[in-house]
Amino acid sequence: MEKKILLAIDESKHARNAVQYAIGISSRVNQLKYTLFHVQPQISQFLRDEARTSLKTQSALEKLKKKNTQNAHILLEKYRDYMLDEGVDETRIELKTAPRGLGLAKDIIEFAQKHRYDAIVVGRRGLTKMQEVFMGSLTSKLIEHSQVIPLWVVDGKVTSHRVLVAVDGSESAFRAVDHVSFIFRGNPHVTITLFHATPRLKDYCRLDYFTDDEDLESAVLQSEKKCIDQFLEIVRKKFEDAGVSPEQVIVRQTKPRLSIGDAILEEVQKGDYGTVVVGRRGTDRAFFMGSVSNYVLSKTSRRAVWLVS
């Protein structure tokens, strides 16, 4: 079954990192097709307004549009040639460009949804959290607005091919597993780790939880164990149906010393995983997975984080 990913590119090194990651993953993804997509620079509204009443300005506007389109094709062809040099079949590469309309992030998302892509791939901009608050970034805006299509955020050069999926028994985690099983369908060589960090009692409540009630703690943990055991049984079948054998799926569980997010990051570092997959939201009874996905994304470097809604 064909998989289609949309690579949002510009002239930055971050876009090149995203392209390199997409090339690298092709050896483990059957029937992968790429679309290199570039949104052209914004044209000022003032110039557009002036062009309505001035033939001279209208001519200048058309020249600018033509130049933007030409530059876009030059950029797209450069990336295509790079991918060809890296061994990607030309029939698997498509080039697309469009003038900016709703805004850079929204234009990318709208194009991806309209043409039913399986993932959007973007290089992380590398802004600090404070810079993102005041300036914004393509990455942060894609994270905010891409609520349907999975988003692959690539930070730096990713060298490891190992894949970790953080699971918590939630519907969002199941969709993450579903996405991973689809992407790696029928590949006998990929190995996938399902990682579950057992939450502490206070992970289920926004208040600080200080209690000596061992029965309450035990009841929560017992319920959590039952939930995750059932979840793992279902997702193992999901992978098997996708042609990924049980031997290719490793389950790791731990009770974290600190937070869920720190437990995931510790496992990622220890296992040298290049791809980390997280659901955007957790179970209805717990708030922690939604905050965990943001935490993992903000703390991860030289890896790709897949965010699945």
Rank of each mutant, 00 (worst) to 15 (best):
R285N: 14
F287A: 07
R303I: 08
G290F: 03
F288H: 05
M289R: 12
Y295A: 09
G274L: 05
S298K: 15
R281N: 08
K299V: 00
G279W: 02
S298H: 15
V305M: 05
Y295T: 09
T300S: 15
Y295K: 14
V277F: 05
R302Q: 15
G274M: 05
K270R: 14
G274T: 03
R281P: 07
G279E: 00
V305I: 07
F288I: 04
R285D: 10
G274D: 00
F287W: 10
V276A: 06
R285A: 13
V278C: 08
D284Y: 07
N294C: 12
L297R: 06
N294Y: 14
Y295N: 10
M289L: 15
S301L: 11
Y273E: 00
V276P: 04
R302A: 13
F288S: 04
G279A: 02
R303D: 08
V296H: 02
S291T: 12
V277I: 08
F287G: 10
K270F: 10
D284C: 07
F288W: 04
Y273T: 05
Y273W: 01
D284N: 10
K299M: 08
V277N: 06
R302D: 15
V276R: 01
R303W: 09
R281D: 07
S291H: 12
S301Y: 12
S291W: 09
N294F: 13
A304D: 06
R303Y: 09
V292L: 15
R280N: 05
V292F: 08
D272C: 09
V292T: 15
